[in-house]
Amino acid sequence: MFQHNVGSRDDLSAAIYLYRPGDGGLDRVAIMLANHMARQGKAVELWMAHTDGVSAHLIDARVPVRRVTSPGGNRRLSMIAQFPALAAMVRRHRPNILYSAGNQSNMLVALACLGTTTRSVARISNPICPPGRHDLAAWARWKRFCAISRISDLTIVMGEHDRALLARSGTVRLLPRPTVTPVMDKVRMERQPRDADAPYQLLMVGRLVEQKDHATALAALARLSHLDWRLTIAGDGPLRASLAAQAAALCIADRVVFTGYVADPERLADLMGQADLLLQPSRWEGLCATLIEALACGANVVATDSTPNIRPVLAAAGQHPPVPTGDSVALAHAIERTLARPAPMSLVEAAIRDHRAAQALDAYVAAFADLIPSPVASILPSPAWP
Rank of each mutant, 00 (worst) to 15 (best):
A217T: 04
K212R: 12
S242C: 12
R267M: 12
K212A: 07
L221Y: 04
R223F: 00
A222Y: 00
S225H: 05
A220M: 03
L218Y: 03
H214N: 13
L221R: 01
L239M: 13
L239G: 03
A269C: 06
E266G: 07
Q246S: 07
D264I: 12
D270N: 09
P238R: 11
A249R: 12
D254S: 15
P238T: 09
R255A: 13
Q274P: 02
I233D: 01
L224G: 00
A275H: 02
L218R: 08
C251K: 15
I233E: 01
L271N: 06
R255S: 13
H214V: 10
D236E: 15
D236K: 08
A269T: 04
K212H: 06
I233M: 04
A217Q: 06
A249L: 00
L271S: 05
L271C: 04
P265D: 14
L231C: 06
A247C: 12
V256T: 05
K212F: 09
F258T: 07
A269K: 00
W229Y: 05
A222E: 01
C251H: 15
A222N: 02
A219F: 08
L224T: 00
P265R: 13
R230E: 01
D254T: 14
R255D: 10
T232R: 11
A244C: 14
I233F: 01
T216N: 10
P265F: 13
A220V: 04
A241T: 07
R223H: 00
L227V: 03
P238E: 12
P238N: 07
D228T: 07
C251V: 15
P238W: 03
T216Q: 08
H214D: 05
A263C: 11
A219H: 14
D264T: 07
I233W: 02
F258H: 10
P238F: 02
L221H: 00
A253K: 09
L243P: 00
A217P: 06
G235E: 04
A269P: 03
A222Q: 03
S225I: 05
S225D: 10
G235C: 10
H214W: 05
E266V: 09
A249D: 09
L221A: 01
L239S: 06
L268I: 08
L227I: 02
E266A: 12
A253F: 09
A247Y: 10
Y261C: 08
H226Y: 03
T259I: 12
V256G: 01
A244N: 12
A217L: 08
W229Q: 00
V262C: 15
L271T: 06
S242P: 00
G235H: 09
D254F: 12
D264H: 10
H226F: 02
A217S: 11
A241L: 08
Q246V: 02
C251A: 15
D228Y: 01
A263Y: 10
L218E: 01
D264P: 12
A219E: 15
Y261W: 11
A234K: 11
G273M: 07
A253D: 15
L218M: 05
D264S: 12
A249T: 11
A247P: 11
D228A: 13
A244H: 13
A269L: 02
